[in-house]
Each structure stands twice: as C-alpha cells, then as structure tokens.
Nucleic acid binder design. Structure first.
Length: 599
RNA sequence: GGCCCGGUAGCUCAGCUGGAUAGAGCACCAGCCUUCUAAGCUGGGGGUCAUUGGUUCGAAUCCAAUCCGGGUCACCA
C-alpha cells in the first residue's frame, strides 16, 4: 500500500477513535502532497470534517495530529495552517523505504489484475506506407500493452491488417499500367513506399481522367464514376473476390512487398505483435453472426434482402449489416473479427487502439454484439485517441500532405546526431555505439513527443518545427540517467547493485529537503503506474518521469554525491540515485524508450 | 440538425474522484561551468482557466445554458 493511502486509512482510524459517535466516509478524506511553501510531506484537508464534528479546524487538526503522531509512528511533527493539517513523515520511514527498494528492478509493478487482454494497434492498410498518425497509434498501443503487463495482466499484442479492398486495387492497377514491372529491388525503394507511390499515381491519373471527361461535357459526378482507371480498379476488386488467379498473385506479390517494408519500420521502431489477423481471412466471418441475429429476431431483413439493426431505442440510428446482394460491410467483418479474437484467446478484455473518428462505429459494434448475446461484447474497449493534424488541417494521403513515418524517424535520428556532435560529446564512443546512441535519442524523442500528451486529445504537429531535444522530452530524462550512470561508473558501483551493498547503512544525520522529496517521489511510482493502467493513459508516466528527472537534476546541482559531506550522506545519496535511475529505466522501458549510460 | 469530444500563459501541454497564492516545457530577459556530463541549474516577466448563471465553507475541476473549434450520423473502410 502506498504511503498516501496508508495515511488516508490512518486518518480514518484516528477519526473513528476520537469521535466514535460519528462515521466518516473514507472517500471524504483528502490526502495531498504538501505544497512546497509549507513544512510537511502530506496534507490532510480538514474542511470536510467541520460540519460533521461541529468543531473548528484548529481543534480537529490538533486532536487528529496528536493522535496520528502517537498512534502510527509514521510522523515526526505536524502543523496546522488555515484548515490544512500538514504532516511531516519521519526520516526513518524514508530511509527504510530506500534501503528496502533501491535494488528492486521490478519496483512499481502491481500484481493481481490477472486478466487476459488483447490490445489491437497499428492496423494499417496495405496500399501505402505508415505515416505520423500511425506512429501515435503504434506507440500508444505498445505502451499501453506494457503498462497493462506491469499491472499483472497477460497481454496479447494484435494487429489487424486491412489487406483487401478497393484501396489496394488502386495501387495494383496503377502498377500494372505504369510500373513496367518495377519491384522494390529494381527500384531500390522500400516495398511499402513503392506501392504507396502507385497509390498516389492512381489518384493523379484519376484526376486527369475525370478532368478529361468533364472536358468532353460530362458532369463531375458521372465523370468520377466513369473514369477508366476507376472502372479498372473496380474490375480488379470483382476479380479478386471471385478468386481470379492472376489478380490474386499480383495482390499477394504487392502485399508481400508492403509487409517487408512494414517489418523494417516496425523493427526500427522497436515494436512487435503476438498475433496478426488479415482482413482477407476474416472479412466473411461476420455473416453467420448476422444471420443468426436475423433468426433470433434481433436483426431484420428488408425486402431487398439487406439486413439492418434498429438502434433508435439506444438513441442511435438504423445500421446496415449486410448489403442487398449479401456482401459484408465494414461492420459485418468487425463483428466477426471480435468474436474470432474472443474464441481464439478467451479474452477478458479486448482493447482497440483506434482514432476518435471511429467513436460511433465502435459504440455501435459493442452494442450490436451485446444485442446478439455474444460474450465478447462486454470486454470490448475502444481506446480512442485524437488524431495528429498538421497546422493546415488533417493529413491526406491522396493530396500528399502526409508526414511519412520512416522519414520522420530518420529526421529525428539525424537531428540527434547533429546536436550530439555540436555538444562535442562524441569522444570515447565507437562508430557503432554512436549510431546506436543516435537511434536511442532520436526515437526516444519521437516516442515521448507522441506519448506525453493525453491520448484523448488531438495534437497538432508542425513539420517545419523539429521536435525539441530540450525541456519536457525523452532526451532530458536520458540525460539525467546518463549523469547518474557516470557517477556510478566513477564509484565502481553496478547500475543494479547487490541488495546487500549498503545494508550496514545507518541514518544519523537529518535528511535534506531534496533528499526527502526525491524519495517521496520514488515512493509514489507504483500508484502512478496503477493509475496509468486504469486510465489507459501512458502520458501520466511520461509526466511523472520528467518530474523525477527534473528533481534529480536539482538534487544533483545542490548536493555532491561523490564528495558528500560524510560517508553516510554519500551512501544515502548513492541509494537514492541508483533507485532514481532504476525507476526511470523501468518507466521509459514501458514507453519503449531506452536510456543510454553515456551521452 | 442529432449525438460525441475539446477550449487553461505568445506557442505546446499538466492539473479536472472539488481544497492553500493555477503549474511545466518552448520562446523572451538576467545570472551559474578551475568541483560527480551546462542536452543542465537558479531567478524574472507573462493568466478574465471561452462566456454567463447555479451548487458549495471553497469551483479551472461539478451542473445548466451560450459561443467557438473538431469528429460523426454511407448498401465507404
């Protein structure tokens, strides 16, 4: 149990003891960190008790303070300031805490959730390379997966690849027409980029053909429908659905190129998946589910054979589930895939990392499954995140305004190289070590940039401004970590020493304010981690890590460690920085961010 | 129009289960490297927490209305 909640319980016990005639709900007890301008570590707000106890805040505070000091042994002193009871925790508590935990590499992890969860993320289309928006999705999915694991869940990382449909046929037809047999090898570019180039080519040609038809006197709508390249793409889709061997071969070849390209990107990003689903395998699955829904009377058929669900009672609309010709729509295949995932893994929860433009779709998906009585319905959770926009608005791949993911990574790595060289800190590294370091810094900055904001909020990225390596960044945290490692190297102490290392440590000197504050901050890490899992929000971990690194930097500036005023202080501070580095490493690992020992 | 989400410093964002004088980073200004990594530290200026009303001892936080921005409401995915 964290100290804050220990205090909350202690206050509840104290009130029960002091005022047996009244009952105070534990949720009415507010325990906060004491504001820096006052003396103390934690503060109990006294106002909620005034009416209940019919006493003045000072009187309650005095009784409560005296009782807490005497009964718990946790506190050395208290102070009452205008309705707030500020408690000072005994140095002994902090010292015992740091001695107990400073070598625990799993510190902060919470056991007990014990659920099996699938997190689906990335989920790309196969007609173009990954872009900046995918990066937010991927980093968020990967980070949430790790955070859930650290809280005792079994997590299956899933990826549902949208490998079929008109979009890939567009790339296919443009390739057939204009590529002259070009392959990634012959063209010397990544497969996903090559296929994406033909998707762009398709749209260019399409625009020209529409314009030509309009020039011949057709109206816009008709021209859009009759443009030859569009008709050819649709013909390809029909042939694909019919299983035409040539079309399937072309499709397989081009998707193969894309997967190879994606694999290179994923590898560089440091992300992976445990289970990959392909829509070409799953897109027909929902039909049976829908038909059984008709039998049950949950769904209904119109005269033309199309199947619908009526969600007007739920405040929503009527929704189509099968077309008149019996083919599936997007929702149909998602119903099937949801059931498939559940049947494959017996999931307690199924998390979908999908942008907030699909909020309505996901709400309806869950609702339909519930109405169909499918057990997978309850576990469905839409982790809805805001989209990444440019200052000019949304990214549009057709208009070529997307920020490419591979380019972005390369730019960030180049930037970290430039700034490292500028700072003149490249000595003592081999060429490979430097290349590794630039990846660590560049990718770290990128991941942190995308993870540090609340997922729910949309974010605007200006490609003209490069992502900063100063201030609230991964670089800042990496730098604090490297500084700690530098001290430990000098002192010949391992990053994670043997737990017996400072066993004989005895505290006699009073802790400094910064020593207390940094230990207090370390003590709160498990609560932060639990909260991040409950909220599916990694940004709180970024926030916490930055604050901890910042606190360390202040600490580092104010206190010498190697040349501390006494051997006792030196040992205490070593334990503090060992644990600080360890917690930072743990937290950033969950974010997929590595911390270098030297930079 | 219905439903959903957002609006906090010049910019990017914390804080939102109600608690002390609303916090960071960037940018700007002024200091700090013969001492463990200055990618750092210290200090400064900068706010009608969109607006109005309500609940409360207490509201950026909760409720209502309004304004502004975005998303969505396809036999597209």
């Amino acid at each position: 149990m964290t100290l804050a909640s220990q205090i909350r319980h202690a206050v509840a016990d104290a009130l029960m003891h002091l005022y047996p005639e009244v009952t105070v709900n534990i949720s009415a007890i507010t325990v906060n960190q004491t504001k820096p301008e006052f003396t103390g570590d934690y503060t109990v707000v006294l106002f909620p008790f005034l009416k209940l106890l019919r006493q003045k805040p000072d009187a309650i505070g005095k009784q409560l303070g005296d009782h807490l000091v005497a009964a718990t042994g946790l506190f050395s002193a208290y102070e009452i300031v205008s309705g707030f009871l500020n408690l000072s925790v005994k140095d002994g508590f902090w010292v015992a805490f740091i001695k107990d935990h400073f070598t625990d590499v799993h510190y902060g992890e919470n056991a007990g959730a014990n659920r099996r969860v699938m997190a689906e993320y990335s989920s790309p289309n196969t007609n173009k390379p990954l872009h900046f928006g995918h990066l937010r999705n991927i980093f968020l999915g990967a980070a949430v997966s790790e955070v859930l694991k650290a809280n005792g869940n079994e997590v299956i990382k899933g990826n549902l690849i949208n490998d079929r449909g008109i979009h890939i046929c567009k790339s296919m037809i443009a390739w057939q027409r204009y590529a002259d047999g070009a392959t990634p090898e012959s063209a010397g570019i990544k497969g996903d980029h090559l296929v994406g180039d033909y998707y762009v080519k398709f749209n260019d040609v399409y625009k020209q053909e529409v314009a030509a038809l309009v020039g011949q006197g057709k109206d816009e709508k008709t021209a859009e429908k009759e443009a030859p390249i569009m008709l050819e793409a649709q013909e390809l889709l029909r042939k694909w659905e019919a299983g035409d061997a040539d079309v399937r071969n072309l499709w397989q070849m081009m998707n193969g190129w894309v997967y190879k390209g994606f694999d290179v990107s994923y590898k560089r990003l440091g992300v992976s998946f445990d289970k990959v689903y392909y829509e070409s395998d799953t897109y027909l699955l929902g039909k049976k589910l829908v038909e059984s829904g008709v039998d049950k009377g949950v769904l209904y058929k119109k005269e033309d054979g199309s199947v619908w669900i009526d969600l007007k009672e739920e405040g929503l609309d009527e929704k189509l589930l099968l077309r008149g010709d019996g083919t599936s729509v997007y929702m149909t295949q998602d119903l099937g895939t949801a059931k498939l995932k559940y049947d494959d893994f017996h999931l307690d929860q199924s998390v979908y990392v999908i942008a907030d433009e699909q909020n309505y779709h996901m709400q309806v998906l869950k609702l339909i499954l519930k109405k169909l009585g499918e057990p997978c319905a309850d576990g469905i959770f839409h982790l809805s995140y805001g989209m990444v926009e440019l200052p000019t608005g949304r990214m549009k791949s057709r208009e070529g305004t997307v920020v490419d993911a591979d380019d972005m990574v390369s730019e960030m790595v180049a930037l970290s190289k430039e700034q490292t060289e500028q700072s003149g800190k490249t000595e003592g590294f081999t060429a490979e070590e430097l290349a590794q370091l630039y990846e660590t810094i560049g990718l770290g900055a990128l991941k942190f940039y995308l993870l540090r904001v609340d997922p729910k909020k949309k974010m605007i990225f200006d490609p003209k401004e490069s992502i900063d390596l100063h201030g609230y960044t991964a670089t800042f945290i990496q730098y604090a970590h490297a500084r700690i490692c530098s001290i430990l190297r000098r002192e010949n102490i391992a990053l994670t020493p043997d737990p017996t290392q400072f066993q004989s440590f005895r505290q006699t000197a009073e802790l400094s304010l910064l020593e207390r504050k940094i230990i207090l901050s370390l003590e709160e890490y498990p609560a932060i981690l639990a909260d991040a899992a409950n909220e599916f929000n990694p940004s709180s971990i970024c926030n916490y890590s930055f604050q901890l690194a910042q606190l360390f930097n202040t600490f580092y500036d104010a206190h010498s460690i190697s040349k501390a005023e006494s051997e006792e202080k030196k040992h205490l501070r070593l334990m503090i920085i060992i644990m600080t580095a360890s917690v930072l490493r743990h937290a950033m690992k969950l974010m997929g961010i590595r911390l270098p020992e030297k930079m």
